[in-house]
Amino acid sequence: MKQRAPLVVANWKLNGGTDLMCASVASFVKKRFKAAIGIAPPYVYISDMVSFLRNSNIMVGSQNVSKFASGAFTGETSAQMLKEVGCGFCLIGHSERRQVFLENDASCHTKIERALAAGLMPILCVGENSQQHELGLTHDILYRQLHQALDGVSLQGQRLCIAYEPVWAIGTGKAASAAQVQEVHEYIRQELGAILGAGVAGQVDILYGGSVKKDNAAELLAMPNVDGLLVGGASLDPDHFAEICAIANELAPHQEAQ
C-alpha cells in the first residue's frame, strides 16, 4: 500500500460550460474522498467551480498561469490572482501549451517560481512526442525539461507535482503500457533526486497523463512510481471521471479523507 493518497486531476482544456460544471458537481454530491481530486476548468468557470465545491474536499485549479506577476500583459492571469479566487494548483507546460503557444522550459521555470510564491501547487507537465519516442530520446527530452524547469527551484516545504504526458498518447487512444509508464516515472524520480535531493524528490507526486480511462486507471495506479493521474478527454464525462476517482479511492491508504 502506498503511503500517499493518489491524486487525480481533470483537465477540461477548452471544453465545458455550465452544464458540465453542474453535472460534474452532481456526480460528487455527498461524497468524500481519501484520494485527492482536482478539477481544472477554463478560466472563466474557476470562481463558479470553487463556489460549487466549497463544501467538498475537491481542489480547483488552473490550466495555466502567467509568467508575469503584474503589468501591461493583456489576457494574462497571475498566480496571485488564481490563488485569490480559490485555486489550489495550476498546470504548467502542458504539451499543448508548448506546441501551440510555443512555451519553453525557461518560461516553465519562471511559472513554477510564480506559483510557489503565491502558494499554488505547480503541476509541471513533461513528455516526448512521437518522433522523439520512436528515436529512443525519451530520457533525453525529460532530462532537459526537468532540469531547465526545476534547477534552482526551492520548494521550502511546498508541494510540487510532475505529470508525465507522452505526447504520442494524448487524445490518440494509445496509452503507454503500465510497464512503460513505470520505467519512465522511475527515471523522473531519479532525476528529481539529482535536482531537488532524494528526500524532497520522494515527496513529489508523479502523475501519468495520456489517454487515461477507467479501463486502465487501476493498472496504472498500481505501479510503484505512479502517484496519480492527469485525465483529459475522459474527464468531460462526469460519470466516467467519477469512476476513475472511485478506483483511485479504493487504492488510497485507509485513513481519514484529506
Rank of each mutant, 00 (worst) to 15 (best):
A5T: 02
L7G: 02
L7Q: 04
V8E: 02
V9H: 01
W12V: 01
W12A: 00
L14R: 04
G17D: 15
S24N: 05
F52A: 14
L53M: 05
R54W: 11
N57L: 04
V60Y: 01
S62R: 13
N64L: 06
N64C: 06
S66L: 05
K67G: 02
F73E: 09
M81F: 11
M81G: 00
V85R: 01
V85H: 02
G86A: 04
G88F: 00
L91S: 01
L91E: 11
I92C: 03
E103K: 11
S107C: 08
K111H: 07
K111E: 10
I112C: 09
A115V: 07
A117N: 14
A117Y: 06
L120F: 08
P122R: 10
I123S: 08
Q132S: 10
L137W: 06
T138G: 04
H139Y: 11
R144N: 13
Q145A: 15
H147W: 03
L155C: 06
Q158D: 11
L160F: 12
C161E: 09
I162P: 00
Y164T: 07
E165K: 10
A178V: 06
Q182C: 07
E183S: 15
V184M: 06
E186Y: 13
Y187W: 11
L192R: 12
A194D: 09
Y208E: 03
V212K: 00
K213I: 01
A222V: 00
V226L: 01
V231I: 05
V231Y: 03
G233Q: 11
S235C: 11
L236W: 01
C245K: 00
N249A: 00
A252Y: 01
